[in-house]
Each structure stands twice: as C-alpha cells, then as structure tokens.
C-alpha cells in the first residue's frame, strides 16, 4: 500500500519461519549495541590481549626473530596448556566486563517501559525471548573467548613443527567447553539480575556485586573458619578450578595460600545451582503481567 493511500488493510503476505524468529531479537540487539561507542571501545579492548598472545606465538615459533631481538627465555618459549589456560582466563575475565555493560542494555530497555507484553502478545514465547537475548551474549562473548582461543590454537598448529597439533588437539575441548560454561553462567546471572533490577546502570552495578560480594564473603568465611568451602561463593574461582582441570594443570589446584581447594564436583554443583536460580528469577520476572499476591 502506498503511503498516500490512507485506508487500512491488514497484512496478508508471507511470514518468516517461527523457529528462527528469536533471531530478530538478536539482530536488533546487535544493531543497538554497535551504535554505542562505549560498547565498540570495550569490544575492541577485549580483543587486544589476543594480539599480544598471537605475537607471542609468532615469536615462539620464529628463532630468527628471537635472535634478531635478542630474546633469551629460560626453557624457551612454550606454547603449551599453561599458555592457553592463561589466555582463556584473561579473555573470560574481559568477557565478564563486557557482559556487565551489554546484558543490562538487552533486558532493562524492554522492561523499564513495559515493552514485554508487546513481545509476548505476539506468536513469541518467554523461552524464545530468553533464547534471543542469550544468543546475543553467547555470540558476543564467544568472539571474545573461545574464538580467539581456537584462532591462536590454529596459528600455533600452523607454525609449530613435530606433531604439535596432534599432541595438543585435546586442548580444543577445554578452550571451547570451559568458555561455554563461563558464558552460560554469566549470561544467565546477568539476565536474571537485569530482569530483576530493570534499571540499566543499577543492573551493571548489581552484576558486579553479584560476583564480587559473594567472593568477598567467601574469603572472609574461609579466613575466619579456616576452611575452603567459602570459595564456593567465588564464581571466578570455581571457573578457574574447572579450567585448571580442563587444561590438566593439576599443579594449579593448590591455592595461593597453600590451602586445598573445593572439590570439582562441588564447583559444578554450585555453578548448576546458580544457573537454576537465575532461570527461576528469569521465570518470575519475565512475566507479561505481574501478579500481586494476597
């Protein structure tokens, strides 16, 4: 209908497949994010360490450059599991910072002015809404975490000699899977907090607190009671524990103070519990209409 024809008529044209409709949310969210300069800056900064790691790999595999720059490292440049562990650890922490900025903008904007009923009054469900938003975080944080990990692994595999690739191929699993675990937990906690708080800036602060305050409380608990179970409240530490196991760095298992660390199964249970709690909060808060009890 041309604009000048003012008579109303409903749409009768073709429709997109229902199964992929949640990607509309993802597309619009990305369009909104990349309009923000702060986000672009954070995103670029999150990729900077990867360049240094890439330079390291190049240096480690190029003796001519080493001689030219007169680098002498005891034991030589090693690109082993410790290297990828460090890379994943740094990138996942940067992913956390990026997530703190991104996640509230995804959900709070919809909730603060009551747009959610408009989403849910369409052939569109709450799980699809969460899926659409999670897809944004998953794609974004993947680009910051396991994608650079795999690229650097491929770079090293291309430059290294002597069957390095086959002997280290197992590291692909922890690079991808551990990052996926961290991304899942981050996205669920952050979405839950954003849905709960609704205000973007406050949500960013609360996400920080959700990670830092329990970690601090856990440390106090450990110090006072001389135990290690307080570490269960430190999500970064739990992730580190899983990462250490994944990269077969058993020597890292002993904590900095020489205390034993929480068992791996406890770390998994805690992370699963946190994810379930986040899903519960999302279920309670992402309602088209709030029901007042009593």
């Amino acid at each position: 209908m041309a604009v000048y024809k003012r008579r109303y008529r409903p749409y009768h044209g073709p429709l997109t497949p229902e199964r992929s409709r949640f990607l509309v949310l993802t597309r619009y969210a990305f369009a909104g994010l990349f309009r923000s300069r702060v986000f672009v800056l954070l995103f670029v900064l999150a990729l900077v360490p990867t360049l240094f790691f890439a330079a390291y790999i190049f240096l480690a595999n190029n003796s001519a450059v080493q001689q030219f720059l007169q680098f002498h490292v005891a034991g030589g440049f090693a690109v082993e599991n410790k290297f990828f562990f460090t890379l994943t650890m740094i990138q996942t922490q940067l992913a956390f910072l990026l997530n703190c900025w991104v996640c509230p903008t995804l959900v709070a904007g919809d909730l603060v002015n009551g747009a959610l009923p408009l989403f849910l009054s369409r052939p569109f469900s709450r799980p699809e809404y969460v899926l659409g938003k999670c897809a944004v975080i998953a794609l974004l944080l993947s680009v910051v975490t396991w994608v650079p990990g795999l690229i650097l692994f491929s770079l090293q595999a291309g430059l290294a000699e002597g069957g390095w690739t086959w002997s280290h191929l197992w590291m692909v699993v922890p690079i991808v899977c551990c990052s996926a675990v961290w991304i899942s937990m981050l996205s669920l906690i952050s979405l839950a907090v954003s849905a709960w708080v609704k205000l973007r800036i406050v949500a960013t602060g609360v996400i920080f607190c959700a990670f830092l305050v329990p970690a601090g409380l856990g440390a106090i608990f450990n110090t006072i009671l001389g135990t290690y179970w307080g570490s269960l409240l430190n999500f970064s530490e739990l992730f580190r524990l899983i990462l250490v196991k994944g990269f077969r760095l058993e020597s890292e298992l002993v904590g900095r103070a020489g205390l034993p660390q929480v068992p791996l199964f406890a770390a998994w249970i805690m992370m699963i519990l946190v994810c379930v709690l986040s899903l519960y909060i999302l279920d309670a808060r992402l309602q088209a209409r709030e029901v007042v009890r009593g």
């Binding site: 044209g13 909104g32 603060v112």
Partner: peptide, 28 residues
C-alpha cells in the same frame, strides 16, 4: 494488542519500534 499501560522501547525511533514488533509477528 494495544495495552493499557506504557509499552515502548524508549531509545528506538518510532518507525523502527513498529518494524521490530512487526518482524516479531513474522513479517519479513
């Protein structure tokens, strides 16, 4: 559905907001 209460995305232009909603209803 036109709800009773405020329902919009503040930082989106009007036409883009309606386009967004139409796409969620299945329009290409």
């Amino acid at each position: 559905y036109m709800p009773e209460t405020d329902a919009f995305i503040a930082k989106m232009s009007g036409v883009r907001f309606v386009q967004y909603m139409a796409e969620l209803s299945g329009l290409p």
